[in-house]
Design a protein around this nucleic acid. Structure first.
Lengths: 347, 347
DNA sequence: ATGAAAGCGCTAACAT
DNA sequence: ATGTTAGCGCTTTCAT
């Protein structure tokens, strides 16, 4: 690749100064029509394309948003990335990825990387217990940041799904259908989402006057494989539940696998409902009754909050936490005959 | 955010020159242990973090890989992005996203954006008929590029899945089970992948001495909704097929929806097989017999090729095209009783 | 309305 | 082994 075409080349070609070129490109001060035309021609004829790197160095903004998330392989995060990217693009921002693999160390590296790249803002789905390490650095750096999914620190803007009432609703739904022995497969301990969903599980039991029983609460570590194992063990007991609630979509897959392997029919022999919807869940037989997160809303709001903060860099308005309503999707796996749809919104 | 900490600050603090600081950071020339220590201390104590933007301007490399793909919402591309990002990261590269939405215009914008950002290389999944517009520009720019999935231009390194034999194999598989009327739902016309899979379909028919029948070849435009409609129309005819082959995973979903709506049982009333596997396909009932693309292999190879080209910027070795073998996954939807697994590799 | 020139924070000759 | 300094390509103040 030969030497890049620069603004100076354009200026020379158009017979004007570089500052004039810059100003016609950015429309940042009036330029006479004649000169403007000359410049545009020059740009076209020599095929000039502005160097964002140089621009960034001069203005100290990069129009880059850093996205830090656990495992891009996580199905939940694809739509998040897509939504962030497309919302960001509308405002002239591009996205840089940084996988945190759900480990504090990698998360820290990811953040360092992005900070080094001088991204204008960061959207982060915090891993477990990273408060001390990463978030402090982020706060100290002063780079606008919004946390999504797991709400870990009120120093930042945060946006996530409603967890407690949504999960409680699943319990109530099953209880209403007559279930008295309802198990819950929970996610990685240490995640706020996990804690809240477990809380919702217990809240739901209470409301239905059902006892909380330790052996019905198992951890699936947010993953399919572990959830499958957890269910397998759960059903080895003589005292089996009649319904299982999954703490997230991956674990739902694991639960289904376990049940299929054990030849337990859903919903006849076991009702199954899930916090988190699965893509294409409608073609599963039976369809899985689930709570769907407002993923796009979360992403869009996060981007909007982030861009607001980037723009108002000076003023430090109070960070806010947003809990977005989920959607209950009634399908077949709960074993009810009635179909309906409803939404739970906070307050 | 206050003024950024620069190398000059570190130099002052450590009582050395900036070049010494630069050299200890980059390990680009010997520095005495004492000075090195001083510098490291200074860096730590004032919390210095190198400015990649300035570095990039000076070295004219960004360590950024641009990823241009259709709709990040496309399930196929998530693992691709993930794999590219993680492979890239191992070599010190970060990924910048640019959604092409499968439209030439957006693709062109995406490429311009990335070129403006001076990415070191680009991995692109070409949209349809963009040869004239985008690829020429890319070629002219001289920025290392590798094409994935859809192989559209021998001027670039390209890596994609085997399509022809893989699809033919699906036909043969069904024919062996006794099917004589096999329909194919094809993708967007204009994609090389679509053309090749259709070719494989016809090749398979030939090999089995089955006639090609126009009404059994329908387009699903690579999307679930269209595939659903196509199947619906297909089955309105009095002369129905006994088996359907899907041209990609989205269309498979559409096909399943159509069949479920029409209360047609798989595989009893209709066999279904798919080019493209679906995530969690194993929990579908029945399990969908499918050809799985070597997605990670494609991504890894693409990154490797790209980085090789970036490093050997001078020498222009001949671009190569790589066709990677697919994997046949035998499940239940084809209606065979025997289970097996095999792999088709080119040559 | 236009131009000259001083940075932005770094790298990499070029001295010493 | 270390320091000085001229760029990298742009934006933006300051003159004109």
């Amino acid at each position: 690749m030969k030497r890049a075409v620069t603004m100076a080349d354009v200026a020379a070609r158009a017979g004007v100064s570089v500052s004039t070129v810059s100003h016609v490109i950015n429309e940042t001060r009036p330029v006479s029509p004649e000169l403007r035309a000359k410049v545009m021609d020059a740009i076209r004829s020599i095929g000039y394309s502005p160097n964002m790197v140089a621009r960034s160095l001069a203005t100290s903004d990069t129009r880059l948003i850093g996205i830090v998330m656990s495992a891009l392989t996580n199905q939940f995060f694809l739509p998040v990335v897509a939504a962030i990217d497309s919302a960001g693009r509308r405002h002239g921002y591009s996205s840089v990825l940084a996988d945190s693999r759900d480990r504090v160390k990698d998360e820290a590296d990811a953040v360092s990387l992005l900070l080094g790249r001088r991204v204008d803002g960061i959207i982060l789905a915090p891993t477990t217990n990273d408060k001390e390490v990463v978030l402090d650095r982020l706060a100290a750096s002063g780079v606008p940041t919004v946390l999504i999914d797991r709400l870990a620190d009120p120093r930042f803007d945060q946006v996530g799904p409603e967890n407690v009432e949504s999960t409680a609703m699943l319990v109530e739904h099953l209880a209403t259908a007559g279930h008295k022995k309802i198990a819950f497969i929970s996610g990685i301990s240490g995640l706020t989402t996990t804690a809240e969903r477990v809380r919702g599980y217990r809240l739901g039991l209470e409301r239905c006057n059902l006892p909380f029983r330790r052996q019905f609460l198992r951890t699936g570590h947010s993953a399919a494989r572990e959830a499958e194992a957890a269910v397998t063990r759960l059903l080895e007991s003589s005292d089996k539940p009649t319904a299982i609630i999954s703490g997230n979509n991956f674990m739902t897959i694991g639960i289904l696998r376990a049940l299929q392997r054990l030849k337990i029919n859903i919903p006849e022999d076991m009702a199954v409902v899930s916090y988190d919807d699965i893509e294409f869940a409608d073609v599963f037989r039976p369809g899985i009754t689930a709570i769907a997160q407002p993923i796009k809303d979360i992403a869009n709001l996060a981007v909007q909050l982030l861009i607001d903060r980037i723009r108002n860099k000076g003023k430090t308005s109070q960070p806010q936490t947003y809990i977005l309503p989920t959607r209950f999707i009634h399908r077949d796996s709960c074993g009810c005959s009635t179909y309906s749809a409803s939404e739970w919104a906070p307050d």
